[in-house]
Nucleic acid binder design. Structure first.
Length: 419
DNA sequence: TCTGGGGTCCTAGGACCC
DNA sequence: TCTGGGGTCCTAGGACCC
């Protein structure tokens, strides 16, 4: 460690999914640039996935927000053109972006599908940072066809806040001396980690801007919000010092799969089928990563009021078998379900450990056989595609045998690329 | 045809032990 | 037997992010 100040860039793709689609379509002969018309990437209403995932600048003018229901967006913007999401394409664009950024520095942290941090410390001087960021921005536009906003500062939090200052296709700085002028006047909910619940409480306390949060008594915040209070007070003052993490991925803590079913589930057998389709994917991912789990959790979203509840269980010996996990899921579901119509079901496993450390107990010998079955099925799916083999009880169910995550070929290129 | 899906971290409360 | 304290583990739920 040296005492020199760090220099961090935060790169944020403008309207990522929509930009990716626009570029792809232009490359394939489209006459219209989606970015110039009221358009949005959105899930299908027919299968009840109808929310806005990304929108163009013209759509934004109508007051349409990301995460909003499509019918609501169309009420605000009647001529809205909606496009179904294509995650395989977005992952390709993501990989291209990361590779391009790595040509400027090897210290690139992938933060999400459309955001990266770059540690430029020691590569350029602070005085050259705007020029360098503009070079990155222009290079992305020229090579990949979409625009980004880049934020520059001495830590990741400030760099991230900076990239939001000017959009699209822009570079902004937010160095510590600029905090009072550039960050403090902003509404408090614009601060990273201040979401709906916290901003509601802060505003009730009379704290409306990031500045008034920064200048209030940290002890009062700690008293009211526990550790959260300390965190947001630090952020409001620009205090943050986590490193740009180079490992391509953090340690996996858990993995889950959930889906909104295109009809309301009202009977146990159908719920079981959905759970199995969810577990198939989770089990595969678990085995693919060479991990076993000790905690299994099932979540249920009510159709009536969209409220969610969950039930979980910790087991003695870690497992990775689809059949075993499915067995626990059925049990959890039976214990939790109150009989009301279900809109959405989820399965999640956590407390993960490497599969190699797992010792099978005497009573679990038959699971050895099950493991071989799991492995054989995984291999067939990897080789011939996810639809090549599935349990016979899906044949007439009208449900997808593998729900979510890996259910369509969309996710497959991503997965195999890790191999 | 009414609002997705993938994560992480924290906290409160209960059970149980010494 | 009726009043504690300290600690760990487990579960449910809520907060935030993209």
């Amino acid at each position: 460690m040296n005492n020199e100040e760090k220099l961090i860039f935060h790169v944020d793709v403008n309207s990522a999914f929509l930009s990716f689609e626009a570029v792809y379509r232009l490359q394939h002969g489209a006459k219209v640039d989606l970015r110039d018309i009221p358009s949005a990437v959105a899930g299908s209403q027919a299968t009840r996935h109808g929310i806005i995932l990304a929108k163009s600048a013209p759509t934004k003018k109508y007051g349409v927000k990301t995460g909003e229901a499509v019918w609501e967006a169309k009420r605000k913007c009647p001529h809205l053109v909606t496009i179904p999401p294509n995650y395989a394409l977005y992952m390709c664009c993501h990989h291209s972006l990361v590779e391009l950024l790595k040509s400027f520095t090897d210290k690139v942290q992938v933060f999400s599908i459309d955001e990266c941090f770059m540690d430029m410390s020691g590569i350029i001087e602070e005085s050259q940072s705007i020029e360098a960021a503009n070079k990155v921005r222009e290079c992305i536009k020229k090579e990949l066809g979409f625009t980004v906003s880049i934020g520059i500062s001495t830590n990741k939090l400030l760099a991230k806040m900076a990239s939001d200052l000017k959009k699209p296709d822009a570079v902004s700085t937010l160095f510590p001396p600029e905090i009072p002028e550039k960050m403090w006047p902003l509404p408090v909910e614009e601060l990273y980690m201040v979401g709906r619940a916290t901003s509601y409480k802060l505003r009730k306390m009379g704290i409306d801007t990031i500045g008034s949060l920064a200048n209030c008594d940290p002890e009062l915040l700690k008293y009211k919000f526990k550790s959260w209070g300390e965190l947001i007070w630090n952020y409001a003052n620009g205090i943050e010092d986590s490193p740009v993490s180079l490992s391509s991925r953090e340690v996996i803590k858990g993995m889950g799969n959930s889906t909104t079913i295109h009809f309301d589930v009202e009977d146990k057998e159908t719920a079981y089928q959905v759970l199995l389709s969810l577990v198939e994917t989770v089990g595969m991912r678990l085995r693919f990563e060479g991990l076993c789990c000790r905690v299994i959790s099932v979540s249920i979203k009510r159709a009536e009021d969209l409220t969610l509840y969950s039930h979980q269980l910790k087991i003695q010996s870690p497992i990775d078998s689809t059949t075993a996990i499915y067995g626990y899921c059925k049990q959890l579901f039976d214990e939790a379900w109150k009989g009301e119509p279900i809109r959405h079901l989820g399965v999640r496993v956590s407390d993960l450990s490497p599969a190699s450390n797992v010792q099978l107990s005497m009573f679990e010998r038959d699971w050895e056989k099950q493991k071989k079955v799991d492995r054989a099925v995984d291999q067939i799916r990897m080789k011939f595609g996810p639809g090549s083999i599935f349990r016979s009880n899906f044949l007439w169910s009208g449900l997808a045998p593998l729900e979510g995550g890996l259910s369509d070929d969309a996710s497959y290129p991503v997965m195999t690329s890790i191999l």
